[in-house]
Amino acid sequence: MLRIVSMIVPLLLLAVVTIAVTLPWGLPDNARYILPMLPLAVIHYWTLRHPGSIADWMAFASGLTVDLLTNGPLGFWALVYLLGFATAVVARPWADTGALGRWVVFAFSMIVVTIAAWFVLSVYTLSWPNILPLLKAWCAVTLGYPVFAGVMRVLDISRAVGQNTRLERGA
């Protein structure tokens, strides 16, 4: 039962955050990138801590939903979330470096994704758009990540199950 719940939680959390970021929260114009970057924190956390709990197609579906509901070009956030997924997969060897280490890994992954997003944006618009709003969003999401990770840690049932597993020689 716990295994099933632990499989559903990341998917449900990603779905909730995906819908939430498209709602009108009344953020000022220059903070418009912050919300769509939040699902990246979910994707990163679960992919890093529990490989396989969020699949690549889930990241794609989440991004596509954001694209559809925000009327942006289809495929933009889908591509960005897939890149976020890939950076988390690549960063797996550093998953056990402690809370601070994981924060640094997240910050580094997100800056790679942010620059990639800006590049995609430039190619799409055939211009050099201002990167500052994206960097602001990166700052906000990175600074907020410990809080976000804390919330997800509470919901992380499989972590609790893992903690209770006692490994013994010959078991």
């Binding site: 490989p51 699949a55 690549d56 794609f60």
Partner: peptide, 27 residues
């Protein structure tokens, strides 16, 4: 390996191409 943890899969590459195709169509 744990199921579903086989790193970057072929599906990922396919989805990236699909995203790019959608971007072109949106454009």
């Amino acid at each position: 390996r744990a199921p579903g943890s086989q790193g970057i899969r072929i599906l990922w590459i396919g989805l990236v191409f699909l995203s790019l195709a959608l971007l072109v169509l949106s454009r």
